[in-house]
Amino acid sequence: MHIPDGLIWPLIMLVGWGIGITAVAIAARKCSRSLTNERIPTMAILAAGIFVAQMLNFPIIGGTTGHLLGATLATLIVGPWAAIIVMSIVIVIQGLLFGDGGILAMGLNLANMAVVAVAVSAVFLRLLKGVGTEAAVIVASWFSVFIAALICAVELAVSDLAAPGAYGIVWSLSMPFMLGLYSVIAIGEAIITASVAKYFMLVHPGLIATAKSAPEASA
């Protein structure tokens, strides 16, 4: 879901930068009040793990592939504010070092994948706290990808409306394709995230115990 340069109407990219930078600044401020030295290695390993996991595309339908986004996993383990930082580091390094996602579109990629996906994860993890971690993780990770894809589809559609033929993709194509494909990719996200969360619950329960309190603790 890494948006390349030249696809989105410049004004929307500007809005993306505004949202991305503001959210990262707020997240950094929140983390600077709550982050302890003990959690630093967890954040670093989590970010690096998400980076390599995003390199491992899995096949879905008709030759299309998808990969883990990792926003729910990050939110579950380090809480939403630190998760925004973790996801942002991954997206910035992908863009600067590997050209994965455009430089001008990086603000929008931050907004979609580091802000929207993390916010959706945090909301669902909190709303479904009572039904058990596994169920909450499955629902949160599915919606984190689906809502991020929905926002991306809206950005494509609005770009087309603003500058038809120059930017974006007409809504009658962007909406069904993006939502159809990412509803399936989101199932992969839910399976992988739930499996990793289950593994941590079995072999490293302290990490999930921290995670359970993290969304509230750092909110």
Binding site: P4, T64, H67, G102, I169, V170, S174, F177
Partner: peptide, 20 residues
Amino acid sequence: GPDGLERTMENAGVAEHGSV
């Protein structure tokens, strides 16, 4: 295989351009 966004771009006949 293209990912979801790349597939959507392919289906819409939109190519990557404008990389700076």
